[in-house]
């Protein structure tokens, strides 16, 4: 057990190190002075330049530079944005929660819809229900997210006018920035018209969340269905029937757990796709998340922002993936100790 947590931890640290190396290297790869790319400051005054060069140890070897880069990263000193001139650390941690919020709701919704439907399809393998669900999931899976998002805007915002076109909440409301999760922030705040703000925020959220949910649901459905189809003919399921248990009892006691255990790590892997889709959707709905922020940075050739943004997003994805995988393996009693440690 300990060894295998250690292995996950090693993998995590190494991956993060590689990501840091890459982001550091980016400062050299981007056009312009590496020091400017690292700090994000236009250093016209030679004295300032000297001070910064000193801080980043630019005259020492590359390894020393990298080490000090790591230390600064750790301290939260990520440099400044070219375009806004604000500290990147703060900018990123202002916009990241919005993305996480979007993805979380989408993920929860798609698990809520996808898993039961997957079970339904798997239990009716090769029958009409199964085929219909499978066909629907193929459609959902292969629809490009940006196209779906545009289509939804066209239909629900412009034609029917049910939902607002873009943004996170109407400008009428002034929500304090606390956790970064807008629903939570509204809940915690002592605004005068909390209820109205809540409804407004949810209305803004419906379309972006749904656009991501559809694709993710399709994936979850297919994974669940596959797992159920694989578990159903297993000998222990047949043996449970032979013990005189009813279909319900067999499914609840023996099928659900065995089907879900192997797909938990697979679901973790989907967080990459989920975040990517969330970032695309953000751009279309002008959702103030990290995806939107990064795209803006790329448009404006804001090199320090690109560097730090990439690092933040990839760290988030790697942390999620490894953590959920670890968790899934820890709670899974079906694997041998040795087999469980494999990644």
């Amino acid at each position: 057990m300990f060894r295998f947590v250690l292995r996950h931890f090693n993998l995590y640290v190494l991956t993060l190190l590689v990501l840091c190396i890459f982001s550091f290297w980016l400062a050299y790869l981007f056009p312009g002075d590496p020091l400017v790319n690292l700090t994000g400051l236009t250093l016209n005054d030679p004295a300032d330049y000297q001070a910064m060069a000193q801080k980043y140890h630019m005259d020492s070897g590359i390894l020393v530079q990298f080490w000090h880069y790591l230390v600064l990263l750790w301290d939260g000193d990520w440099g400044f944005s070219f375009s806004s001139g604000l500290p990147l650390y703060q900018e990123i941690f202002d916009s990241l929660p919005a993305t996480v919020e979007l993805s979380t709701y989408a993920l929860l919704l798609s698990l809520l819809i996808g898993i039961p439907l997957g079970f339904l399809a798997g239990l009716r393998h090769h029958r009409t229900t199964d085929n219909a669900l499978l066909a629907a999931s193929v459609v959902g899976y292969s629809t490009p997210v940006f196209w779906l998002a545009l289509l939804m805007i066209l239909l629900f915002s412009l034609q029917l006018g049910w939902f607002p076109l873009s943004g996170r909440i109407s400008l009428l409301f002034d929500v304090p920035h606390d956790t970064g999760f807008i629903l939570v922030d509204i809940w915690l705040s002592d605004m005068p018209n909390k209820g109205a703000a809540m409804i407004n925020a949810v209305q803004h959220m419906v379309m972006p969340v749904l656009s991501i949910t559809i694709v993710t649901t399709a994936i979850v459905l297919r994974l669940t269905r596959r797992a159920v189809v694989e578990v159903m003919p297993k000998e222990y399921v047949q043996a449970a029937y032979a013990r005189g248990l009813s279909k319900h009892q067999v499914i609840l006691r023996h099928v659900v757990r065995n089907a879900m255990l192997p797909i938990l790590p697979l679901l973790a892997m989907q967080s990459t796709i989920l975040l990517t889709n969330a970032m695309i959707v953000e751009v279309i709905y002008s959702w103030p998340g990290i995806g939107n922020w990064l795209i803006q940075a790329i448009y404006q050739r804001d090199y320090p922002a690109i560097r730090a943004g990439m690092l933040a997003v990839s760290t988030l994805v790697v942390s999620l993936t490894i953590f959920i995988d670890l968790l899934a393996r820890i709670i899974d009693p079906t694997r041998e100790r040795g087999a469980r440690a494999k990644i």
Partner: peptide, 21 residues
Amino acid sequence: IMREDIAVIFQNPVNSLDPSA
């Protein structure tokens, strides 16, 4: 009948046990 009258021991005990319970 399977619950009350007939009991069975399948050939492969390890496969007939639910690995997650």
